[in-house]
Design a protein around this nucleic acid. Structure first.
Lengths: 237, 237
DNA sequence: GCGCACTACGTACGGTGTACGTAACTACGA
DNA sequence: TCGTAGTTACGTACACCGTACGTAGTGCGC
């Protein structure tokens, strides 16, 4: 029997090693590391069961002993990179702490550009994700609100980070496996957009594109967005 | 020659009908409608080039005359449902208007649960998307800020809506094609989460799950989130 | 009216996730 | 202690997928 895909399950509820049978040759960490390496180097679409198995050094179907479904492989990947979060002793300044968390998450996503795409596809309560959430809650201890509101704040912040980094990466991760460069694609898209705007049908958008000159400071935009959201939760504002 | 996939392009820059040759048998609207119908009924993964072509009533490869890449089919779908946005004469109260926009978008995504997944994969400047953006900017005319800030507001609001609806739909859209029900899956997941929390390793999360009793009012959570974000942009706050 | 760009579509290639069958192995219950 | 049940390992096979390519037939622009 190869795995138990034909019933609902959470991979983290399955013991990694279960008494009987030969010792598993690989750990979940091994598998996750291989998958993450492939995704970092060649994009998420390059991560297939066959490919991971091959790089791991085992037959394709052997991988299904460890990872019953491809989705679980993604779960492993998300958890692995969630483990890269640095968790510190809360400073007492919840705003500063949350800003630091958000910037760390942004850096994480820039390091692993496939992560935003995965965020909405994984369970979100893997071991490292739980550690991360608990840490966020700890940072929010100074806030008087009930835990529910704090969870809303964390969710909102994660949403913002994911959204903004997705925009930042936009075509970057998309054009990875394409035979033309990101610059070529962008040029075509900008040309199209300008032709649309030139029709005069969208006067306000036209003004928006007139105004901005030079490259936008994405980090500054991100920072502004964060502060606006935090303001919404700040009892002193 | 079947399409011109081997170079960067934006489908909206290609004329739908170009003088020469037999009249195309289908319009982009036809194709989009078929694809949307399939996705609504059976989920986004059921939308394949073969399937759409079959339901359209033509050979698989004929579809490539209209839609050079699958990605462009997604583009068509996103544009089609973007056309469902009702655009009204701005009221002068930008906050009320933006709330209305956000709620409309949320409804749209509940009607087409595959839309959030598509949002980060499409170009975002299709004809109907441009109309939508221009309308949002018109609603924001009363705001004194430069257009750039308004664009940031729109982006942030769209991000929030997408994030929240994604969470709301969570397992719903995911379990569509699976042989078990959403309720079964949720039960398994909750059982796992409770077992983790029972370890005592996550005291703050434990408190969060103790507190909330009864089903959460998702609409209320959404409304709170929106207002917090709007506060961040309100010059009177 | 010639030619070319277009439509239509069948075939085929290389990939995907994964169900299933088989063989070897090991820890546990009797 | 030994049989057996549950595990690991893995090859084969199936049903899909996106799409490159070749070959017709069609009708507008020159």
């Amino acid at each position: 029997m190869a795995g138990r895909a034909a019933e609902p399950h959470v991979i983290w509820a399955r013991p990694e090693r279960s008494g009987r049978g030969p010792r598993p040759a690989y750990s979940r960490a091994d598998i996750a590391a291989v998958a993450v390496r492939i995704a970092d180097a060649e994009g998420l679409d390059a991560v297939s069961m066959r490919r991971v198995a091959a790089e791991l050094g085992c037959g394709t179907m052997s991988l299904y002993n460890y990872v019953p479904r491809k989705e679980d492989l993604h779960e492993l990947m998300a958890d692995a990179v969630a483990g890269e979060h640095e968790l510190w002793e809360p400073s007492g300044d919840w705003r500063a702490d949350m800003l630091r968390v958000a910037h760390q998450t942004r850096d994480l996503m820039h390091r692993h550009p496939w992560l935003p795409r995965l965020m909405s596809a994984v369970y979100g309560f893997s071991p490292n994700a739980l550690r991360y959430l608990e840490h966020c809650l700890a940072c929010l201890d100074p806030l008087p609100d009930p835990q529910g509101v704090k969870m809303e704040l964390i969710a909102m912040l994660n949403g913002i980070v994911t959204t903004y980094v997705s925009n930042e990466l936009a075509t970057a991760e998309r054009t990875r496996s394409l035979p033309w460069s990101q610059e070529q694609e962008n040029a075509v898209r900008i040309a199209y957009l300008q032709s649309r705007i030139a029709t005069g049908e969208y006067p306000r958008m036209a003004r928006a594109f007139m105004e901005d000159e030079g490259p936008i400071d994405l980090e500054a935009v991100f920072e502004r967005a964060l502060n606006r959201v935090l303001d919404g939760f700040d009892p002193e504002k």
